[in-house]
Structures are given as structure tokens and as C-alpha cells.
Design a protein around this nucleic acid. Structure first.
Length: 647
DNA sequence: GTAGGGTTAG
């Protein structure tokens, strides 16, 4: 009834609407509905695709009286996954059970992917067991997604477990599975030794005839960069080159090459055509480094290469304006974007709304919220938390209250959101106001637990209201909730930083013992230092005694404290240890030196390329495009003047 | 394949 082969989504929609209007939808069967839905899920960026899918799904049941099958649900779930809507996915999954539609491998794969992407819980193993119980076949994709879930939960042991299970089930990992597995290990590796395990996996995969790809190298290089192992990253980069694997912007970022320079290298050295992502990434980097001229060149080059600005492009540019508090230009881009038929998504809205909140313009912010809701984009947790956090940064504690009040009118704020507000309230107000917000939280049926108290106590400490911090700390204990290590550590530091609170600090120290929490190295040194600095030598001896009793190496702590004391007694003018002083100065020198040489180098390379590009772009771009590009790029002058340009 | 997989874009 509806031809989908090789036709674009808009035409298919027209055909569908014709059937709808002529009351002929009942001529479509489930397969045909699925085929049509499938077209839209692949083209979710076309305007209104999401709404169209929802109405097709509804028409299918209400008008055509066609019962959705597991494929229909899979398609809808896939749509929700792309929309990052976990609620929708769960609803579909629940509906399937209610209607006795059996989920298949794909359903579960989507569910696992969703929990790794959207849910906080660690239910990967539970879903896997469910598949086993219900005898639903697993495949390599299932395990790839299970590894994703492990990565999101930072659960490396579970990843190893899944790897063994996979081999036991007779499934041969392919490059995707291997990369996902390697990713879990690499992302969580704290040092080279832990990263070695990822290298071992690579050895295994090579033995299986699967060679590392760009993605594999990017994962490893990024991990090395995160560890600060620049030399090792470069080494790996060289190995990658030797194997003939070409880098992309992400690889280059891993070895410290960003922005225009990165694109230059991709084009000139590696002869690769940058992708849309490469352009966006590099432009974002340039904007964040305040290299506005570069950003403009990147934008032109991107358009010449046939890439139209997409949501991310717009978002990157808008955020650059928002960082400069220029909401007018940001809103201008918002209009331009809609004129370009690029649909704003929740990131776009979140950035704009947040920008207005940052400027104290609550009215404008919430006008945009209502626009957002009108276009069927929900006010999600991410947006709410972002607004509250931004409002919290204001000196005026009323801002967060106003924002929160507006949010309450639209939705039930999450527990997390309430706690963020409490954190800020406790910084500026005393007990009764905090109590008021606790009541609000209670009204929304949120449990008040350790997390809640931690938010309040941390807030009060940050606001230097230690009396209130102690009040809530005691309240918490009265409720039968014990502090955890983080909270106790934080309390001790907050009290120790205030010279008047030494006795309170020492009584908090006893809580480690009282609540059976083991103090760590930092805690111990912190308290011992405090005793030493304030000449509380009796307490010092007592604490060292306690430590010995508890099996700590008290002598080594004693030695470290004595050493510190001697240093400060040496009577040098600076409190800093001479080595530290030297390194600090030397470090500054090194920083300026390397910055200067690299600036010169970048400048030289840039000039050449910018000239090239400028030539091409003036030929290729029409005037309209040129003025658009100029209008988009943040106007602030580049901080580093570019030599060789006119003037 | 009507639906599902790896690193980087806001």
C-alpha cells in the first residue's frame, strides 16, 4: 500500500496521510506499519519525526485495529532510545508483557543499551539472566551492549565475567565486542599496569585474526592521555601510523592537537576528509580556546565540504555565545536554526534556558521552557539539575528558590533536584528555612536519608555555618543514620580549617571509631597536622596510640609529623618546602616557554592554511552563506593576533 | 533486516 523503497520520509508521510484522510488505514497490515515506522526511526532528525511516529503508532491501534507485534515495539523502543527517553522504553517493555508479546533478542539488546545509557541502576546482569531464563538467544551484539553497561557502571570485574560467559556460550567476539570490552578496561585503568590488561585483550584478538582499528586506538590513546602519559600516547600513535590506521580528530586530541591545527593535520598529513563530527569537534575546541578566527575558518571549510550545520553545530556555536553572556546572539542562532529546518532538541533548550538563568532572567528562561514543552520535549532531569546548579552559583540565594518554585509548578522535582536546592539553601539560610525545604521534599514523597543530610551538611559547611552543619549532623544521627566516610572526612576538614573548632574536630575524629569507619591516610595526616600546628600534643599522642591499637603503622605517621614539625621550625621565611618552591617557579617558566613556541608554530601553519581556505571559500561560497557564517561566529577578537592577515 | 553494537561532537 505504501512504497518505502528508495523514497524519502516526507513523501512516505504524504502517502500515509492520504490513507489516513480517506479512512483507508485498515488496509495496512502490521508488516506495513512496521516498515513505515522503520523509515522514520532511521530519519529522526527530520522535523516532527518523533511526533509522526507516535501518531502512527496510535492510529495503528485505534483506527486500523492492528495489533502491534514485537517488531513494532522494538522500533518504538529504538525511537525512545534515540530520544534518550527511558520512561518510554520501560512503558513499551511493560506493554509487551501485558499483551503477551514475547520480547526477542533485539528487545533485550535495546533494554541493555538503555540501562547503560539512561538508567542509574546496575541491572545488566539481571537482564542477562532474564534472557537465559526465558531462553532468548544472545548474540555478539548482546555482549557488546553488556560491556557498555559495565563501562557505564565502571564495573570492570563484571566485564571480565561477561567475557568468559560469552566464550562459554560459544560466541566469537568481533571487532565491536572487543572494542567495547577494551573500553571498559581502559576507561577504568588507573595506571599502566591496569591498562596492560587491555593490551592483553588486543593480543588475544590479533591471534583470532581481528586487528585493532581506529576506534581501538582512540580508546587506548584517550586512556593514556587521561593518565597523563603523553609519551606513551605518542608511542601508541606511532604504532597506529605504522599499521596504516589513519587518525581522526579524537585521536589527535588524545595527543594534544586540537582545533584548526587538527583539521590541518588530517587534511595535509593524512589526506583524510574530515567528517561532520571532526568539524564540529574541532570547531568546539577552537571556540573554547578563544580562537575565534580559527572557528570561523573551520565553519566555512565545513560548509564547503558539503556538511550542513546540524544540531550539534548550532549547539556548539550557541554555547560559545552563552559563555560570553550574549543571549541575543544565542537566540538569533536559535531562530536561524529553526529557519534551517534543524529541530532543536533538549540540549539546545537546556543551554538557552540555562543561559537565561545565569543572567537572572527567570521569566525568559521559563518562557522558553513552555516553548519546549509545546514542542513535545520534556523537561527532563538533566535540564532541571542544570538549571538548579546554575541558579545555585548566583550570589543571590533567592534565584535558586525562584527557579525551584517555577519547576514545582510544572513537574514534581526529583529527590536529587530537591537536595541540590537544599545544598544551596543551607549555605545562606539558617535552620528554619532548611526545615521549610525539607517539608517541601516530604510533600513530594521523597525519602529523607543520608544523601539528603549530606547535601545539607555540605552546604552549611560551604556557607561557613558550622553550627548548622553540626545541628544537621546530630539530627541525622538521631534519626538512626550514620555518616559515611566522605561525610565524616568533609566535616573534619571543615572544622579543622576553622581554628576555633579544634575540640569539635577532635570529637568528630572519635566518630571514625564510634561508627566503625576506617580513616584513610589523608584523614590521619590532617588531624595529626592540626594537633601539631595547634600544639595539642596530648591529643596527638592519644591519636597515635589509637592508631597503633587499630593496627595502623603509627610510627610512620609519627615520623612524618615530626619531619613536618622540624621543617617549620627551621625558621625559613617561606613555609613551602624548598623543592616545592623550586618546582613551582620552574613549572611556571616551562609553561610560558612551551606556550610561546607552540603558539609560533601554530601561527605559522595556520597562516598558510587559512590563506588557502580563504581563497577557496570566497570562490565557492555564495554571499548569503558568507554573511551567515559571519553572523554565527562569536564576535570577540581573537586573543592571539594572527600575523600576516591584512592590517 | 521494519528494530539492536565500539571511541570523540553540544
Amino acid at each position: 500500500m505504501i512504497e518505502t523503497e528508495g523514497r524519502d520520509a516526507e513523501d512516505i508521510w504524504k502517502d500515509y496521510k492520504t490513507l489516513f484522510n480517506t479512512n483507508n488505514l485498515n488496509k495496512l497490515d502490521v508488516t506495513e506499519f512496521n516498515r513505515v515506522l522503520g523509515v522514520f526511526v532511521k530519519n529522526l532528525t527530520i522535523p516532527g519525526a518523533y511526533g509522526k511516529m507516535l501518531s502512527i503508532f496510535q492510529d495503528m491501534r485505534d483506527m486500523a485495529k492492528v495489533k502491534p507485534d514485537e517488531s513494532t515495539y522494538n522500533i518504538m523502543m529504538s525511537m525512545y532510545l534515540k530520544k534518550k527517553d527511558f520512561k518510554g522504553i520501560n512503558l513499551c517493555f511493560g506493554d509487551m508483557q501485558k499483551q503477551n508479546i514475547l520480547p526477542n533478542t533485539i528487545t533485550y539488546n535495546i533494554m541493555i543499551k538503555a540501562i547503560s545509557k539512561l538508567d542509574k541502576s546496575d541491572t545488566a546482569m539481571a537482564l542477562y539472566s532474564e534472557m537465559v531464563e526465558r531462553k532468548i538467544r544472545r548474540n555478539e551484539k548482546t555482549f557488546t551492549m553488556l560491556f557498555c553497561a559495565c563501562s557505564a557502571r565502571r564495573n570492570v570485574p563484571q566485564a571480565h565475567q561477561f567475557y568468559r560467559i560469552m566464550l562459554n556460550e560459544g560466541l566469537q567476539p568481533d571487532i565491536y565486542t572487543y572494542n567495547a570490552y577494551i573500553n571498559v578496561i581502559a576507561r577504568n585503568a588507573k595506571d599502566l599496569k591496569e591498562l596492560q590488561k587491555a593490551m592483553d585483550v588486543i593480543k588475544q584478538m590479533r591471534e583470532q585474526g581481528v586487528n585493532p582499528t581506529l576506534v581501538t586506538y582512540n580508546i587506548l590513546i584517550k586512556a593514556l592521555q587521561a593518565m597523563g602519559k603523553r609519551t606513551d600516547a605518542l608511542h601508541l600513535f606511532n604504532q597506529m601510523e605504522l599499521e596504516g590506521v589513519k587518525p581522526n580528530s579524537s585521536t589527535l586530541e588524545g595527543i594534544g592537537i586540537t582545533g584548526l591545527q587538527a583539521l590541518l593535520k588530517l587534511r595535509n598529513t593524512y589526506k583524510v576528509t574530515p567528517s561532520h563530527t571532526d568539524f564540529n569537534t574541532c570547531m568546539d575546541q577552537a571556540l573554547k580556546e578563544s580562537k575565534y578566527t580559527d572557528a570561523m575558518e573551520i565553519l566555512s571549510y565545513m560548509q564547503e565540504s558539503g556538511f550542513k550545520p546540524n544540531v550539534s553545530t548550532y549547539s556548539i556555536l550557541m554555547n560559545a555565545h552563552i559563555r560570553q553572556n550574549d543571549m541575543i546572539r544565542a537566540m538569533g542562532l536559535f531562530t536561524a536554526m529553526k529557519n534551517d529546518n534543524v529541530e532543536p532538541d533538549n540540549y539546545i533548550y537546556a543551554s538557552l534556558i540555562d543561559g537565561f538563568v545565569a543572567q537572572n532572567d527567570v521569566e525568559q528562561a521559563f518562557t522558553l521552557v513552555s516553548h519546549m514543552l509545546e514542542s513535545k520535549i520534556e523537561l527532563n532531569k538533566m535540564t532541571i539539575n542544570r538549571l538548579i546548579d546554575t541558579a545555585s552559583k548566583s550570589k543571590d540565594p533567592k534565584l535558586v528558590q525562584r527557579v525551584f518554585e517555577r519547576i514545582e509548578r510544572l513537574t514534581v522535582p526529583s529527590k536529587d533536584a530537591c537536595e541540590r536546592v537544599l545544598w544551596r539553601i543551607a549555605q545562606s539560610y539558617d535552620i528554619p528555612v532548611v526545615e521549610k525545604y525539607l517539608k517541601i521534599m516530604n510533600k513530594h514523597n521523597h525519602i529523607i536519608n543520608r544523601e539528603t543530610f549530606t547535601a545539607i551538611i555540605t552546604g552549611a559547611s560551604k556557607g561557613c555555618n558550622l553550627t548548622q552543619a553540626r545541628y544537621w549532623y546530630n539530627q541525622m544521627i538521631e534519626q538512626g543514620i550514620s555518616p559515611d566516610h566522605m561525610l565524616l572526612s568533609m566535616m573534619i576538614r571543615a572544622h579543622a580549617d576553622d581554628a576555633k573548632e579544634i575540640d569539635k574536630t577532635l570529637s568528630l575524629w572519635n566518630d571514625f571509631h564510634y561508627f566503625g569507619i576506617a580513616p584513610d591516610d589523608d584523614d590521619i595526616m590532617y588531624v595529626l597536622n592540626l594537633c601539631a600546628e595547634t600544639s595539642h600534643w596530648r591529643d596527638e599522642i592519644k591519636i597515635l596510640g589509637q592508631l597503633k591499637e587499630l593496627g595502623y603503622d603509627a610510627d610512620s605517621y609519627k615520623a612524618r609529623i615530626t619531619e613536618k614539625k622540624q621543617q617549620s621550625n627551621d625558621g625559613t621565611e617561606s613555609k613551602m618546602d624548598p623543592d616545592e618552591e623550586y618546582y613551582e617557579e620552574y613549572g611556571e617558566y616551562l609553561k610560558t616557554r612551551s606556550a610561546n613556541t607552540s603558539i609560533i608554530r601554530v601561527k605559522e601553519r595556520m597562516q598558510k592554511w587559512v590563506r588557502d581556505i580563504a581563497k577557496i571559500s570566497s570562490q565557492k561560497m555564495d554571499d548569503n552563506a558568507k554573511s551567515r557564517v559571519e553572523q554565527w561566529t562569536p564576535y570577540r577578537k581573537p586573543q592571539l593576533p594572527i600575523m600576516g592577515t591584512k592590517g
